[in-house]
């Protein structure tokens, strides 16, 4: 083999383990599930590929409510996380000084505990006669016979809490990388601090906002733990339906179809979103 050809091959050799991994554990299962989604039958007689595209239309008409709810809840949680995370990340990046590492640790700390347990803890925090809800009643945010647990609010709160670190960390990285001399330059040129923030800091933080919101929104849309533990049947999201179809009802085609619909909508959504925020930012944020 000529030296030149070998040189060309080397990058491929490096990529090989990753490519094989993707092929085996991503591409093949994906193709398989696409196929399953087009099968028909029942668990007793088995499922055969019949190109049953109506599974998709049926899935949408039967479960559009859960789809919309998933996007709504995930969307609200993303915005809530952004509102909470931005000041926090800003503080950590510029003002925390020697507390910075401790704060980073505190942000990541909940991850040392199981996801389900963290969510169950919220069942206790938001219990009808618990301290939190009683105080909310005192200030009139919850009516006397009202509740927080087993409502949409609890589900959104749970999602926001569980995914908060995914928003904080990319934001922190993005903010921390900003060269503060840009801000100094802006103020030297008679920009007020607010204007400097709006025209310099914020635009430079966009890769972090973009990455953070994707990291929160995508898994949140498919989440089913929060709705199962903190919600009721009226708050179930599309993840709950997929889980029930796969494990309980054993209707694999519908479960697969629902997953593909979800994936498609998210991919299209991301495409539009990245257009709006500039395509380069995604890769920038990843570096």
């Amino acid at each position: 083999m000529s030296l030149q050809r070998r040189r060309k091959l080397i990058p491929w050799m490096f990529a090989l383990p990753g490519l094989l991994w993707l092929l085996l554990f991503f591409a093949i299962p994906l193709i398989n599930q696409a196929q399953v989604s087009l099968m028909s039958g029942d668990p007793e007689a088995g499922y055969t590929l019949t190109w049953a595209f109506d599974t998709y239309t049926n899935a949408i008409s039967d479960y559009h409510e859960q789809f919309l709810r998933s996007f709504l809840y995930a969307g609200i949680a993303t915005v809530v996380d952004l509102i909470i995370a931005f000041p926090l990340a800003y503080f950590m990046a510029y003002k925390a000084g020697r507390w910075r590492n401790l704060m980073l640790l505190l942000v990541v700390l909940p991850f040392f505990m199981s996801y389900v347990l963290r969510t169950v803890a919220w069942q206790l925090i938001l219990a009808d006669h618990g301290w939190v809800v009683e105080r909310l009643r005192d200030v009139g945010l919850v009516s006397a016979d009202g509740r927080v647990l087993a409502t949409g609010t609890a589900v959104v709160a749970g999602i926001s809490y569980n995914f908060l670190p995914f928003m904080v960390l990319p934001l922190y990285v993005a903010l921390e990388r900003i060269d503060r001399r840009f801000v100094e330059a802006a103020t030297d040129l008679y920009a007020s601090r607010a204007t400097a923030f709006r025209k310099v800091t914020l635009p430079l933080a966009i890769p972090g906002i973009f990455a953070g919101s994707l990291l929160v929104f995508i898994p949140a849309t498919g989440d089913y733990i929060n709705a199962a533990l903190l919600g009721t049947s009226k708050q179930y999201m599309i993840g709950n339906v997929v889980q029930s179809k796969f494990l309980t009802v054993l209707d694999y085609p519908t479960a697969a179809a629902l997953s593909f619909i979800l994936m498609t909508v998210i991919l299209v959504g991301i495409a539009i979103y990245s257009r709006l925020l500039g395509t380069r930012t995604l890769t920038e944020a990843a570096v």
Binding site: S233, V241, Q243, T248
Partner: peptide, 14 residues
Amino acid sequence: EQQMYEAMAQVTGA
């Protein structure tokens, strides 16, 4: 059994 689970899933919202 599948029919029964499907009916119940409709009720429980999943």
